[in-house]
């Protein structure tokens, strides 16, 4: 693994090199990221600047590498044995693959909602309380209760679970589990929230509520959302990145992508054509 090798490039060079504006408010800076699963090359030389206080959408056909790339941003690929990551990924200028970085601490700062809901085999309450507890975010039981309630409310599931907080999280419906995982992710107040198709199992009402939450989170955080719904990407994000076969094909302001994309592959994909 070539983790965290600093590149001999000035910041300006990088901006010029990839022509997507790396604003002063760049939160995550990824340079020349490659990911292999064994011999399969899943992410190819991807460089991207993700802005702070912005929702960035990753779109692209199934299998193009969206989840793989997302997992690079909080080192979740470390947990996959066959995965090898190279390149330079920085959050607030700090190399997240540096030797002294504790992935567990990193993941408190960079929260994630997975494509498949994965509640812990614990109570609904504990699912949400776990993070704040281990990171010492609550000083008292009352504090913790408050964090749990607020997180569940923000994830638009409070009313459905408030009377069964001690029931197992795994006993919820798919869509409820998804929202529970969103509650769990926001409970630690991460600076960056990575959401991998967070609304795939949600009805339109819950979807709107989650989108509202995403919009609210944007005031303080940087949110990256993977979605297969073009309408959702258009509604919630300010920047959109289109991935295709492991490449970052186009990265621009969302209105630009959805009114006048510059690459033919982007156009074909978002308009539902055989590309």
């Amino acid at each position: 693994m070539v983790n965290g090798e600093a590149l001999n490039m000035t910041h300006t060079d990088r901006i010029v090199a990839q022509d997507a504006p790396a604003a002063a408010g760049s939160k995550i800076s990824a340079q020349d990221v490659n990911v292999w699963y064994g011999t399969a090359h899943a992410i190819k030389d991807v460089s991207v600047e993700i802005a702070d206080k912005t929702v960035t959408a990753f779109i692209g056909p199934s299998g193009c590498g969206k989840s793989t790339f997302l997992r690079c941003l909080n080192r979740m690929n470390d947990t996959i044995d066959s995965a090898a990551v190279s390149g330079d990924i920085r959050i607030d200028g700090e190399d997240i693959y540096a030797r002294d970085i504790d992935p567990v601490q990193l993941r408190a700062k960079v929260g994630m909602v997975f494509q498949k809901p994965n509640p812990f085999p614990k109570s609904i309450y504990d699912n949400v309380a776990y993070g704040p507890k281990i990171h010492g975010l609550a000083r008292s039981k009352a504090d913790l209760d408050e964090i749990v309630e607020r997180s569940l409310r923000r994830a638009a599931i409070w009313d459905e679970v408030k009377d069964r907080l001690s029931a197992p999280g795994t006993g919820l419906s798919g869509g409820q589990q998804q929202r529970l995982c969103i509650a769990r992710a926001v409970a630690t107040a991460p600076e960056i929230l990575l959401m991998d198709e967070p609304c795939s199992a949600l009805d339109p009402i819950a979807t709107s509520q989650v989108e509202e939450l995403i919009d609210e989170l944007r005031e303080n955080y940087s949110v990256v959302i993977v979605t297969h719904s073009m309408q959702q990407a258009a509604r919630v994000s300010q920047r959109t990145a289109f991935f295709h076969l492991g490449n970052l094909v186009e990265y621009a302001d969302t209105p630009q992508i959805f009114t006048n994309p510059q690459d033919k592959r982007t156009e074909s994909y978002i308009t539902g054509r055989i590309g």
């Binding site: 033919k264 156009e267 308009t271 539902g272």
Partner: peptide, 13 residues
């Protein structure tokens, strides 16, 4: 950029 490919949903075309 305009695409002259067909939509997968042919009713759209």
């Amino acid at each position: 950029m305009e695409s002259n490919e067909r939509h997968i949903a042919s009713a759209f075309d």
